Amino acid sequence: MPAYSPSSDSDDEPYSTHSLFRRQNSLHSLLGGGKVADILLWRNKHLSGGILAGVTVLWFLFEVVEYHFLTLLCHISISAMLLVFIWSNGAALLDKAPPMIPEIILSERAFREVASAFHTKLSIFISFLCDIASGKDLKLFLMV
């Protein structure tokens, strides 16, 4: 069967075998043509396989083992702290450089601004909770 060109506007002719959805663009360009398209089309097999393996492990943890997200987050942070502790102490024994962890240095003025903003939001939230607990808004009180 010969391939028809999509140059005609007639709806009677069959689609071209080289076009997708009556376009001359490839599927890669329809998906954006970037890294996401490469991953979805498995052009970068290692990255696509890694993403598939990671999502499969997360699905297994959350659905099969019934692991909770907060527990997973805590275990990851504890493991990271343990790894940095071992790396820092082991580096001195092996005469290597310890890990370079950037320090966040806030000026006293910036610290006051952050603390002030946090304090105002916290006081607004606490007053909102007090309003609910006192029953000033009966509908909201009963919903809670």
Rank of each mutant, 00 (worst) to 15 (best):
M1R: 14
P2W: 09
P2L: 11
A3D: 13
Y4S: 08
Y4V: 15
Y4N: 06
S5T: 12
P6A: 02
P6G: 04
P6D: 06
S8A: 06
D11W: 04
D12S: 08
E13D: 10
E13H: 05
P14H: 02
P14V: 02
Y15V: 06
Y15M: 05
S19P: 01
S19F: 01
S19T: 08
L20I: 14
R22T: 03
R22E: 02
R23M: 07
Q24W: 06
S26D: 01
L27C: 04
S29P: 03
L31V: 02
L31S: 01
G32F: 01
G33V: 00
G33F: 00
G34P: 00
G34L: 01
K35L: 11
V36P: 01
L40S: 00
L40G: 01
R43E: 08
N44F: 01
N44E: 08
L47N: 03
L47R: 02
S48P: 01
G49K: 06
G49Q: 12
I51H: 01
L52V: 07
L52Q: 06
A53T: 15
G54W: 14
G54F: 14
G54Q: 12
T56D: 11
L58D: 03
F60G: 10
L61T: 02
L61I: 05
F62Y: 13
E63T: 15
E63S: 15
E63D: 14
V65E: 08
V65F: 04
V65S: 10
E66P: 00
E66R: 15
H68M: 15
F69E: 14
L70W: 14
L70M: 07
T71Q: 11
L73P: 01
C74Q: 10
I76P: 02
I76C: 03
I78W: 05
S79F: 07
S79G: 04
S79Y: 03
S79W: 02
S79I: 03
S79Q: 04
L82K: 09
L82Q: 07
L83C: 04
L83M: 04
L83V: 07
L83S: 05
V84M: 06
V84H: 08
I86V: 13
S88M: 09
S88C: 10
N89P: 00
G90E: 08
A92Q: 10
A92L: 12
L93N: 07
L94G: 00
D95V: 11
K96Y: 15
A97S: 14
P98C: 06
P98D: 04
P99T: 03
I101Y: 00
P102M: 05
E103R: 11
I104E: 09
L106Q: 05
S107H: 02
E108P: 01
E108T: 12
E108L: 13
E108M: 11
R109D: 14
R109W: 14
F111A: 15
F111G: 15
R112A: 14
E113A: 09
V114S: 08
V114K: 09
V114G: 02
A115K: 08
A117C: 05
T120I: 09
T120H: 04
I124M: 14
I124C: 12
F125A: 15
F125M: 15
F128V: 05
C130R: 12
C130A: 13
C130T: 09
C130H: 12
S134C: 08
S134V: 10
G135C: 01
D137H: 08
D137A: 02
K139E: 15
K139V: 13
K139S: 05
L140H: 08
L140F: 05
F141D: 05
L142P: 02
L142F: 06
M143R: 09
V144E: 09
